[in-house]
Structures are given as structure tokens and as C-alpha cells.
Design a protein around this nucleic acid. Sequence first.
DNA 1: CTGAAAGCGCTTACAG
DNA 2: CTGAAAGCGCTTACAG
Lengths: 330, 330
Amino acid sequence: MNQIKIYDIAGAAGVSLATVSRVLNHPEKVKEATRNRVLKIIREKGYKPNANARGLASRRSTSVAIVIPSISRASVAEMIQGIDESAKKYGYTIRLFISDESSDPVDMWSEVIASSVDGILFMNDETNEETYKEIKNTPVPVVFVNNISNSDQFGSVSIDYEECAYKITKEMIDRGNKKILFIDTEHKYSVNALKRKGYNKAMMEANLPKRVLFSSGNIDINELDFTSEIEKDVPEVVLAVRDSMAISFMNVASKKGIKVPDELQVIGFQNTRYAVLSNPKLTCIETPIYEIGSKSMSYLTEMMKDENSRDKKAANILIDYNVVWRGSTK
Amino acid sequence: MNQIKIYDIAGAAGVSLATVSRVLNHPEKVKEATRNRVLKIIREKGYKPNANARGLASRRSTSVAIVIPSISRASVAEMIQGIDESAKKYGYTIRLFISDESSDPVDMWSEVIASSVDGILFMNDETNEETYKEIKNTPVPVVFVNNISNSDQFGSVSIDYEECAYKITKEMIDRGNKKILFIDTEHKYSVNALKRKGYNKAMMEANLPKRVLFSSGNIDINELDFTSEIEKDVPEVVLAVRDSMAISFMNVASKKGIKVPDELQVIGFQNTRYAVLSNPKLTCIETPIYEIGSKSMSYLTEMMKDENSRDKKAANILIDYNVVWRGSTK
DNA sequence: CTGAAAGCGCTTACAG
DNA sequence: CTGAAAGCGCTTACAG
């Protein structure tokens, strides 16, 4: 019942605690025979060092914080899976912090730091100057997940949102489409702004009129917005910043008797599980969110083990994406 | 840059560390004037006690573990939101552990314990005898989330899956339907077994033939299974353990020209966000997963603060659910 | 109401 | 290669 301590192992193995500790932390410093004896007992008793004590004494907690916004989105779960896979590999444990409007972000950030994690994975889709100011004095490495950092101090891992929006728009233009509608969220997200920028660029280059609809996160409002947009003029192609919006648009159009993909083609971003549950199935730019998670964690690991990482410029790592063509496009 | 310590606060306030500590942990024991002076300085300097040191000294970490299976499911994110809301209220911090096939579950569980959390929220949908044996000697309270515990030692918070499956099946029978297909997962989940039990009971009572299809978690295999099931005989009603399976079935049927809900009615479990993205929208038993999360956490809090909780029988708490009727049923 | 001191379970220079 | 000892940053009886 009572948790086993390092003393118990030391006693059973006939060595000092220092030696047990070394077996765990610097095994190469312990004679093989001793090491094996100690390891055997550790295994037998199922000893696990107390994380708090270890963290306090070593000033390294082998734990990292994931900081995510409250908005529950399809992507978060998968991202965490990716992080976890990588964290397991490197022996890190995860503390989860969910920021929301009600809690003071600065307060939250200092709570994260007080939890003495060795590094922070920060997922925040509204990164602005304020944000950078708040987190400037963070004593441990920070990696932005699925977002691009504008500061040399913080690394980031994401896909090139601007480029992929540009390319897919251009592709649809090259296929002869002219009326291309871009659906963005009302709420401003830095990532969506990048997508819009890519779309804008492609449309401008082709001398086509930009057509952007900012809609809500709420499905019922979406449907109203989409209905009036369709009544105004049926686009040939819709590119939406979220799968769910793309599907919702498709459903509204279907109900009005518009044939997808013959009269209207629809493309989403992310390739969530929604994408294969629509009828027809949705063509998407696939955001490899799992990979973004695991890569973020492994990059963070690098930064954490590099003593000099504070003096180096942190990198913005871009992950490959690809387009999954399905029934919602020709 | 350097983190502030309790010493710094004590120095600045002209009191001992003991007093600062008391201000934080037992404010009623400190004279108001002193308390306010100390609090002011704490606020000014943005002091947050080091979580490791605090945990080590007090043997309470004010942190809890969430243990979830690797299978990324739509519900997990929302459940975590619910837990977090409640955790914030009670001042608890979250450590996240994701169990998967590759990692030894016993090993994982002892890692959870070594992290010195004050309690554990355990989400595991394949709870069997093995599981109970593994976690038997846990020194802190455990609450099963969205599952029912068979042991007096562990509490649980969920909805009454058997009852709601029974009631919805009975409701559809009372409306004159006879051919009711139940779609379960191939993989056995204790929660799904409860749903099936409820369905079975209703069908038996009405003297109707049970018809159960166990299908995979993979959408392509699902579609094949569903196609051949429909070709065998088109059911009047489909009740699926997951929204995604219900929607997938509906899509397969639609493609074959079967009209939903006129010829076929479809009902899902959970009411995920998928449910409103289908066409027609899906009728569901709504699992209040957010509420299950937050209730689990608040129940865990009760157990943690009750010194004698070990000697009491832990409760199985049932949360109200309701049925959301939408276009996929008449 | 407040302070001095012991102790939480570890790690890590420092000696040997 | 190993042990004795200091120390990590707190909390909490114990005195006063």
C-alpha cells in the first residue's frame, strides 16, 4: 500500500541511496554488477521515483506542459496523441493546461511555469503582440504547435498554410474555375489569416474577383449565411477553412438541389474524421496534425537538452501536407 | 528571469517563510494586517509556489491524473474540457496519461502513482477483471469516467447506458417498427455491451427477433458490412453505438436510393458534432460528456478531501441524458 | 498570531 | 566506483 522509496531499494540492495539514484540517472557511473543487482530489486518492487522529489532535487521534471485554448476542436485530441507518442519516447510526462476567456492568461502562464515543467508546447490560434509580451520571460523553451512563431525566441511546427491555400486555389483556377468562394471564420485566427492570404494571392494573380465569407462557428448561423450566399450566386468552388464548414455548405447546397461536384465543388481544410462521413466525401487539404504534435514534442526535446538553446534562434519547422481528393471535387 | 521563491516574499514582507506559507495555505491563521501585506507582495511579484516542492512537503499535489486510452475519439476532448472546468474551480492541475497497447498498463499505472497526484480520473472502456486487479492497490481515490465501476473501491460517473438503449428501442417498437438493427463495434467495450443489453431486453419483451451487427472501427470496412446488411434486408430502424457508424450507415443507404427517414430511420449514440453535419441530421441519444467530465472531477474532489473515503463505498453516479430528435427519424 | 526547525524523497557535487 | 552530506522549495507540527 505504502509507496516504496529509494531508501527501501538501497536497503534491500545493500547500497546507499546515492548509488540507487545513480543507477537511475547515470547508470554508466555504476559498476555493472552493482547496477544489475539494484535494477533487479527496482523491478521486483516496482519502484518508481517520486516525481515531485525528483523534480525538486534535479530542477528537471521530465515533464512538459501542453497549453491549449478552450475551444474544443476536432484537432486537439489528435495533436495530443502525437505529442504523447513522442513524449513517451523521450520519457516525458504531460501536464495539461486549458486556457479560456475566464482565466487571466498571464496568471495561467505563471501557473504553468510554477508547475516546473521543462518545456512548453503552446497551441494558440490568436497569437498577437499581447501574447508575445506575456510569455516573453518564460524560463524554459516554448514551441508553438500548428502555428508560426514570429519571434526568434520561440520555435514552431506547422504546415505552410499560406502556400497550400495558394496552391489549391491556383489548381482550381487552372482547372477552369472562376467563381471561387473562400469561407473563413468570423473570429480571427492567425492560421486562417494565412490561408486567406494564400487564396487572395492566387486570385489576384489570375485577375479573378476575391469572394470571402466570414461566418460563425455556430452551425445554424452558418446555414443561414450559406443559404443567402448561394441565393446570391452559386460559386463553382468553395474553399473553407474548416472541414465542418465545407460539409455544412455542401449540405445546404444539396438541399437546394445543387449537384456536388458537378455544379459545385467543395474543399475543406484539415481532413478530420468528418470528411469521410459526408455524402459525397470531402476533398481536403490534409493537415498532418498527429505528426505536427509529435514533431513539436521532439523539437522541444532538442531545445530542452541543449543548454545553449536560449542563445540560438528558434526554428519554424514546416511539415509536409497533401491534398486528399474525394467525391466533393471533379 | 529567475523564478521567485517563498524566501523572496518573506524577505520583502518582513516575515518568516512559515507565515508566507500560511497565508497561502491557512489564511485564517494569519492576522489580517499581516496577511494583506503578504498578499500584496505576492501579487506584485507574481509569486506562485513551486508545485514540486509544495507537493513533496505537503504530500498533496493538488493535481489529478486523467488516464485515457489511446483510441482518439470525439468524446475525449469534450470530456477533458468538462474535467478542466471543474478542476479549475477546485484549484487542481491536470496530468495527462494516455495508455496504449505498446505500454505495459501496470507500468503505466505505477507511473501515474509516482507522479504523486491526489486522485485519478480513469477512462477505460474495456474494464475487466484484469483491470481491477492492476489498480487495486492505488493509494489515492479513483473515479471511472463514462463507465460503471463494479468495485466498491472505485466510484464512477456515467449515464445509464442500458436503460437508455432499452427505452429508445422500446420507443421505436411502440411506434410500430419491428425490424430494428443494432450496430455494435467488433471490438468489445463494456459500455457498448450495456447498450446492447438494453436493446436485447426491449426486443425480447416485444418478442421481436434481435438483429445485431458487429462492425469494425474502420469506415471502409463499415461500408462494406453495411452494404451487405442492407442487401440482406433493409431494416426499419438502425440503432448504432456510435454517431459515426449511424451516419455511415445512412450514407450507404442513401446511395442505394433508400429514403431516410421514410424507409429507414437511424439513431446514434452520443450526439457528437458529426450529428449535425449529416444529411439529414442525426437523431441521437445525447451523452452529456462534458457534464460527465465535470461531475467526475467534482466527485473526485469530494473523495480526495474526505479522509475516510477509503472506508466508504464509492458511488456509481448516473447523469441524466436525453434524446435529440432530428431528421433521421420520423 | 508568528518563527525556528525538521522533514518531504530525491539528486549531485565532493571526498575517498 | 561508492557513500555521507547538503540542498532543492516548500509545509507543518511544535514552541512561544
